[in-house]
Each structure stands twice: as C-alpha cells, then as structure tokens.
C-alpha cells in the first residue's frame, strides 16, 4: 500500500484533508481516493481538500479528487478544493473540472 502524506482534521462542519505532498500522481492518488472514500463511508460527507503544497497533479490525481466529489455528492454532501497552485489549477481548467468543483482561494472563504 502506497503511503500518502496528509493530515485530516475537523473544521466546523467539514473534514479537512491537507495534502502534504508536492506531487499527486499515479503513485499516491489511489491512497488519497481510498482515504476520502473511507471518511465518506463513515458518514462525513462535507469535505475540504487543501492543495496548497501540491505543485504537480496528473490525470490520476484529478481522478481521485473527482471520485471523492462524486462519492460525497451521492450522499448529499460535497467536496471542495482550496489553495490550488496556478499550474495545478490550469489542469482543472483544461479538463473543465473547474466547473465541477467548488474552488476557493483559502479556507476563510468557505462558510
């Protein structure tokens, strides 16, 4: 099992995943996908993924976040993204996933 370095904490009504990796790729994205799914299956469906430290994302990283978004939405919850680096954001824009996710500049913008 590949390790994914992240912290998970409660923030108001949300479960906050802070990713402590520079890369989100095919090596570690399935671990993130599984961790998010685990939280959703425990009934926590309001999720924030903080991406400030992530400076590279590939298709599997986008896929892991999309999977989390779909799993949360299926249980009337949501998964939002904060603090995305510009080059990582450009991957969301290219795939039009910026229209799928709620994206915030920082945590203070989330109610």
């Amino acid at each position: 099992m590949t390790a994914m370095n992240f912290t998970l904490e409660k923030l108001n009504n949300y479960q906050l995943f802070s990713i402590n990796e520079e890369r989100l790729d095919a090596h570690n994205s399935s671990a993130l996908k599984d961790a998010i799914l685990h939280v959703i299956e425990q009934g926590e469906t309001q999720i924030i993924v903080q991406l400030e430290k992530v400076r590279f994302i590939d298709s599997s990283g986008l896929g892991a976040l999309l999977s989390g978004h779909k799993n949360a939405a299926a249980k009337a919850g949501k998964l939002v993204l904060v603090s995305i680096q510009p080059q990582v954001l450009s991957m969301f824009e290219l795939t039009r996933l910026n229209r799928v996710f709620e994206i915030y500049a920082d945590l203070t913008e989330i109610e």
Binding site: D58, S59, S60, L62, G63, A64, L66, S67, K70, M91, L94, T95, R96, L97, V100
Partner: peptide, 19 residues
C-alpha cells in the same frame, strides 16, 4: 476524448499527452 460534460475519474492521461 474525455467527455467534459460527464467527466470520469480515468481516461485523461492520453488527452494531456495529445494536448
């Protein structure tokens, strides 16, 4: 090509390479 209106969790890799 990926279906941007109904995005899926896989299938974007070759799209990036081609783009």
């Amino acid at each position: 090509l990926p279906d941007f209106e109904h995005p899926k969790a896989d299938g974007m890799g070759l799209f990036f390479i081609r783009t």
